[in-house]
Nucleic acid binder design. Structure first.
Length: 935
RNA sequence: GGGCCUAUAGCUCAGCAGGUUAGAGCGCACCCCUGAUAAGGGUGAGGUCGGUGGUUCGAAUCCACCUAGGCCCA
């Protein structure tokens, strides 16, 4: 007889192989069919809101593994919060304006002359194409949200928020027009934010230039001598803009004679300077302190103006001469010194990097052409001491990669240190509100705090076409700036109705109100400001544009979740604009994650070839693998990912999947309503597992609440591997397969298995969104309680099912089981047995332990998965720990008694004793009898 | 150069208000099973806790410096 047919073997439609690349899109289709996102929101419609406000990725290019991580993490949090009973609408957004897109578009246009309006049209098309692409990619990751109706910074309703915020800040006196040296890219013809600068090595000229002293102010040691200050620079082109030479007030300077010339240089650098001319034994006439040199005057190389000696703390001895050439129009520090000494700031360079007439002999030259000309001119004048080349780090444009220049340009700024209504400054208010926010991990507060504390005023203007206009008009007649309630309102209306394109296409006369005239000259003819807003301003108003203006949302957000670069970026721009506009922060808490790095901890880059493409991963292995990686990785620091790591993750996935499959397979004929066994009637080991399950829920919930997602996943994985697979499920197989289908023993096991399955799937659902759903749908329909696992609530531990004494007792037993397994293994190794069922285990134990085991004697064979266990009492002392207790046991493995039952494979002396079922053991015979047919 | 952060077995992570031979899972090696089967079970080998100093009776845990790496800035 084929006894296999009389067993209850597992049965399920849930396959062992995930085949996720094909299966996941099917599941996503199911979600669309049932309208899962809406169903979830509807189920929790009366619950408190939890708003995770999405930071808008830039609508350029495909997603990379970092963006994938970010979106998955957000989705995971939202799904968890939802299951915990919150209503969590999720509106994804995109950052659509800005230089990178405009750059891409203009590159394609080439030399063709087209209008700003046309450029904008093409930029819009370009951005929208990537919005749709990224949207699909995000959704393929299993992210759920309002992808049909995302927020886009290029929409007119969004754009108008910028105008409103700008107007409000303007009214508060926080916005000003200034002239500041800023990074300027002559190739892209635009001002660049710090974020748009890359520092790379560049070979530059390195020249030492003499500035002859014209007025020694009777300084001791210099009086009456023909001497020069010696400066060093790597940017010869900034010399026409020179107005001063800075020395350090505290450093010593030497009046040194070199090749018959008298020079002023820092004392410590005399030797170095002398070596430039191979001069030996430079003769030092005198030494003086830097502060004594202040206000002396030198001759400018080309112009009839003086270069004055000033003091500055930032002068160092690292390179050069200790005398620093100052051009306030071409450097941040120079500018500040210029302000201090009230120096003029000539700036003879135009937008395209060519010298203007102000540059005298060099007018019309590009900066690159001018460098050699300048050096040559200095040589001719006999004031070039030395020249060479030097490689140093130099700022480059992040888009075109060309070197940029420092250049004073009119720009719009947000003032951080202006008092608002005579009380506190924006910086002070921002710093205060930082303390009202919860920062995760907590140390990140230091980062944002120090950045806000030290950042300069925010330059918010850009000289580009693809963005939101700065809503300012100028009087054509007298140049007066027009920025009134009435003008702001008119511009806001224009953009609300027609989008920002209208600003570029229409003349002011067509949209300003009749009664708007220039307050100083009364004219009614205006021109528009041509600059647009920095994109960080745009994304920085998202909390207002989205949370305030969309139905069903709420300002401020509960949570922002972005990478650590956003402390300088979005976290900060949002904070400043929110504090400026609303007076308080836009978020209650901010979670920061690290950056993805490769297996060696190095940053991902195409050139290193270590980048992981998320699309490749989900097309090959499935989005759930990427999601499991996301959840398994500690986000608080760098997040490594490599093929090997994904391989390990896949193995973890398989273990979880198979555990779930076993649970499904062994509950296929179980209906909790009909077949559930009441708690007191459950077998002890089943009650034990139920208790452990409650502990797991508590542990995982606690970890999730503390955003320790990777530990939560590890706890679940450990539960699957050790508690279930290696222990409980392995022990259970015999009972599940060989007991009568409807027997209490089997139903008892199934009761726990089904409960475990439900809880496991629920807790896994935020991470393994597809697999969780696939498994959920594989549960027999009558046993399922919801259309989707994502409609389940997060499990709550049932205190009534916890039994700590039971857990301790079984832990003790498991310790002994380990010892038994060691003995079985050595018996197996010597060839004495194969399967554990071939064994009889004889355990000799001292009193207390013996009693403990004796009490469970009936169950021991099944717990150890052997055929028989015999106990012997020994003399001995009681050991203090369960480990030591287990160690002192004496365990002998013998051949099991009796014959192997062909049905249950256990050895038993009862095999062949039954009259009706003559081949099997007594236990199987009884089971077969209950089925009603004889053999 | 500055700010913040990281460094524990091949991989992912615990441990860190200082205290016995540093843990887990995976992977690996070997074995068993063939009624979870491109599964399942067992046993075992892997770490000078990045390095160097210091504080201490005692440091993976505290301090300093160094090295490597990450983000941001100069």
């Amino acid at each position: 007889m084929n006894y296999k047919d009389t067993l209850n073997l597992p049965k399920t439609s849930f396959p062992m192989k995930g085949n996720l690349a094909n299966k996941e899109p099917e599941i996503q289709k199911y979600w669309r069919e049932i309208g899962l996102y809406e169903l979830v929101l509807d189920q929790y419609r009366d619950r408190p809101l939890f708003i995770l406000h999405d930071g808008p990725p830039y609508a350029n290019g495909d997603i990379h593994v970092g963006t994938a991580f970010n979106k998955i993490l957000k989705d995971l949090i939202i799904k968890y919060k939802t299951m915990r009973g919150h209503k969590c609408p999720y509106v994804p957004g995109w950052d659509c304006h800005g230089q990178p897109i405009e750059h891409e578009v203009t590159k394609r246009i080439g030399n063709e002359k087209i209008s700003k309006a046309e450029i904008r049209r093409r930029c819009r098309d370009y951005a929208m194409r990537f919005v749709h692409r990224q949207s699909e990619q995000f959704q393929r990751l299993g992210v759920l949200g309002e992808f049909e109706n995302p927020y886009l910074t290029l929409s007119s309703e969004y754009e108008v928020t910028n105008i409103e915020v700008f107007a409000e800040l303007y009214k508060k006196g926080l916005i000003y027009r200034g002239r500041k040296p800023i990074h300027w890219c002559p190739t892209c013809v635009t001002a660049l934010a710090e974020a748009e600068i890359e520092y790379e090595d560049k070979e530059s000229d390195s020249i030492y230039v003499k500035f002859p002293i014209t007025d020694d102010l009777g300084k001791e040691g210099l009086s009456g001598k023909k001497a020069s200050f010696l400066i060093w620079t790597t940017t010869p082109w900034t010399l026409p803009a020179n107005v001063a030479i800075a020395v350090h007030p505290g450093l010593k300077y030497s009046i040194v004679e070199l090749d018959g010339e008298i020079l002023v240089v820092a004392s410590e650098l005399v030797e170095q300077v002398a070596s430039l001319r191979c001069a030996k034994n430079p003769y030092v006439h005198a030494e003086m302190i830097g502060s004594d040199l202040e206000h002396m005057k030198c001759a400018h190389p080309w112009f009839e103006r003086e270069s004055v000696i000033v003091l500055a703390d930032y002068v160092t001895l690292e390179q050069g001469t200790g005398c620093v050439h100052i051009a306030p129009g071409h450097g941040q520090e120079d500018y500040i010194t210029g302000l201090e000494y009230d120096l003029p700031s000539p700036m003879p360079v135009d937008d395209y990097g060519y010298f203007t007439d102000e540059a005298g002999p060099f007018a019309g030259m590009s900066l690159e052409e001018a460098n050699p000309a300048i050096i040559e001119s200095l040589r001719e004048k006999g004031i070039l001491l030395a020249s060479g080349k030097v490689t140093h780090t130099y700022p480059h444009c992040w888009r075109c990669k060309n070197p940029v220049v420092f250049r004073a340009t009119p720009q719009w700024f947000i003032a951080l240190d202006e008092k608002i209504d005579g009380s506190k400054t924006l910086r002070e208010l921002a710093l205060e509100s930082i303390n009202a926010v919860k920062w995760i991990p907590d140390w990140t507060v230091k980062r944002i705090e120090s950045m806000v504390r030290t950042r300069p005023d925010w330059c918010i203007s850009r000289q580009r076409a693809w963005g939101v206009p700065i809503p300012i008009l100028y009087c054509l007649q007298c140049g007066q700036t027009i920025a009134s309630d009435s003008s702001f309102k008119a511009i806001a209306n224009l953009i609300a109705e027609n989008g920002a394109d209208a600003w570029f296409e229409r003349e002011p006369e067509t949209f300003i109100p009749e009664n708007l005239t220039c307050p100083s000259c009364g004219s009614r003819r205006f021109r528009k400001e041509e600059d647009i807003l920095d994109v960080w301003f745009e994304s920085g108003v998202s909390h207002l544009a989205v949370l305030r203006k969309r139905n069903g949302l709420r300002w401020p957000a509960d949570l922002y979740v972005e990478g650590s670069d956003q402390h300088r970026g979005w976290f900060q721009s949002s904070l400043l604009l929110s504090v400026g506009y609303e007076g308080s922060p836009p978020y209650n808490s901010v979670l920061t994650h690290g950056f993805t790095v490769d297996g060696e901890g190095r940053k991902m880059s195409k050139s290193l070839g270590n980048a992981i493409d998320p699309r490749e991963v989900y097309n090959r292995s499935g989005a759930d693998i990427l999601r499991l990686w996301t959840a398994s990785t500690d986000f608080s620091t760098d997040m490594p990912i490599s093929e090997e790591i994904l391989q390990r993750i896949t193995e973890t996935y398989r273990r979880i999947r198979n555990t779930v499959r076993f649970l499904l397979g062994n509950t296929h004929d179980y209906n909790p309503a009909k077949d559930g066994v009441k708690y007191p009637e459950l077998l002890e080991i089943d009650r034990w597992m139920l208790s452990k399950l409650q502990s797991l829920i508590m542990r995982v919930t606690e970890l999730m609440e503390n955003c320790l997602f990777h530990q939560a996943i590890q706890a679940i994985h450990l539960y699957c591997t050790v508690d279930l697979s290696a222990i409980y499920l392995d022990i259970l197989k015999d009972r599940l397969y060989t007991s009568a289908r409807e027997s209490k023993e089997r139903r008892s096991a199934q009761t726990v298995l089904f409960e475990t399955l439900k809880i496991l799937l629920t807790m896994l659902a935020p991470v393994l969104v597809h697999t969780g759903e696939e498994a959920w749908l594989a549960i027999p329909e009558e046993a399922r309680t919801a259309k989707s696992v994502h409609l389940m609530e997060w499990p709550k531990p049932n205190e009534g099912l916890r039994d700590e004494d039971l857990e301790k007792k079984w832990e003790r037993l498991m310790m002994i089981r380990e010892r038994v397994y060691q003995s079985l293994e050595s018996a197996r190794y010597s060839g004495f047995i194969g399967s554990g069922l071939e064994a009889l285990v004889r355990i000799s134990a001292p009193g207390k332990t013996y009693d403990f085991l004796k009490d469970k004697a009936e169950e021991l064979p099944s717990v150890f998965i052997v055929s028989q266990v015999e106990l012997e009492k020994l003399d001995g002392v009681e050991m203090p720990t369960i480990e030591e207790e287990a160690k002192q046991l004496s365990i002998v493995v013998e051949k099991a008694r009796g014959d192997k039952c062909p049905r249950c494979w256990n050895y038993s002396t009862s095999v062949g004793k039954d009259e009706a079922f003559s081949e099997v053991c007594s236990r199987c015979a009884a089971t077969l009898k209950s089925y009603g047919s004889g053999s």
